[in-house]
């Protein structure tokens, strides 16, 4: 038997109450919840673990959407704000619009799809462990400090409109600074030499990379109704760590281990 969806009107509702309402619906066995007139309410989907939950958000959800979420699918019909998918474990978030700063911070698994562009510090400290590998696809461009201290997972900057400026930040040595695991793919953009930070290395993708990116981009396109083929025929570049300890030499000279203290 197909379940009907539950519609909750979020207009003027405080975020604590709204999250309580969602949890109450979940406890009653609802698995398709639609939130109408959402405007800035924080922490939606935070900590939820029901793998079969579909949460649809109409409007603009507030900070920390899907924080520590493990399982559900969230679809946002509107723009997103900051810190989406913060420390998220698994599940999927798809935003039909733009995203703010510090998305996917410390993300540990699952998928984050942003239809348009995102702000600064996206994918900082993203990580992976065995089968848990987070994937992020950004349809437009990203700001400085993309993938700073990245420790795992895959991030794709799709650059759908083929911008030729500030596709992955604009300030010196901010792109993937301190990356020590994981990978970033940038489409159709000649990454300027001054952008990559300490420990970041640019390489052409190999066949396995292309397949991995194809699968992520197809999933992204599925949510937003785009044709993946023309997007995937464009060139891309891969950014990976030069080594597993990017600051090894950096700190050694400044703070010698044998300083006579031990």
């Amino acid at each position: 038997m197909e379940r009907l969806s539950t519609v909750l009107d979020a207009k003027g509702v405080d975020y604590r109450q709204l999250n309580d309402m969602v949890r109450a619906c979940l406890a009653q066995g609802e698995r398709h919840i639609v939130l109408r007139h959402v405007r800035g309410q924080r922490y939606l989907g935070a900590g939820l673990t029901a793998g079969d939950l579909l949460l649809e958000v109409e409007g603009v959800p507030g900070e920390d959407l899907a924080f520590c979420m493990g399982g559900p699918t969230i679809i946002v019909h509107g723009h997103g704000q900051n810190a989406i998918a913060n420390t998220m474990d698994s599940g999927t978030v798809a935003v039909h619009g733009m995203g703010g700063d510090a998305l996917a911070y410390g993300m540990r698994g699952g998928r984050l799809f942003i239809r348009d562009s995102v702000g600064y510090r996206v994918g900082i400290h993203m990580k992976e462990y065995r089968e848990l590998k987070p994937g992020v696809v950004v349809g437009g461009t990203a700001g400085d400090f993309l993938g700073e201290y990245m420790a795992g997972g895959t991030m794709v900057i799709l650059n759908r409109y083929n911008e030729q400026e500030s596709v992955c930040g604009q300030a010196d040595k901010t792109l993937a600074t301190g990356i020590h695991a994981g990978e970033i793919y940038i489409f159709n953009y000649d990454v300027p030499g001054f952008l990559p930070g300490i420990g970041a290395r640019l390489l052409p993708p190999d066949k396995a990379d292309t397949e991995r990116v194809r699968s992520l981009v197809e999933e992204y396109c599925h949510y937003f109704g785009f044709d993946p083929t023309p997007l995937l025929t464009r060139e891309m570049v891969k950014i990976i760590p030069a080594g597993s300890r990017p600051f090894h030499k950096f700190y050694c000279s400044a703070y010698p281990v044998h300083a006579g203290l031990s």
């Binding site: 405007r39 800035g40 507030g62 900070e63 704000q81 703010g100």
Partner: peptide, 8 residues
């Protein structure tokens, strides 16, 4: 500060 507030 938050874009949701623009819509207000």
């Amino acid at each position: 500060s938050e874009l949701s507030a623009l819509y207000e």
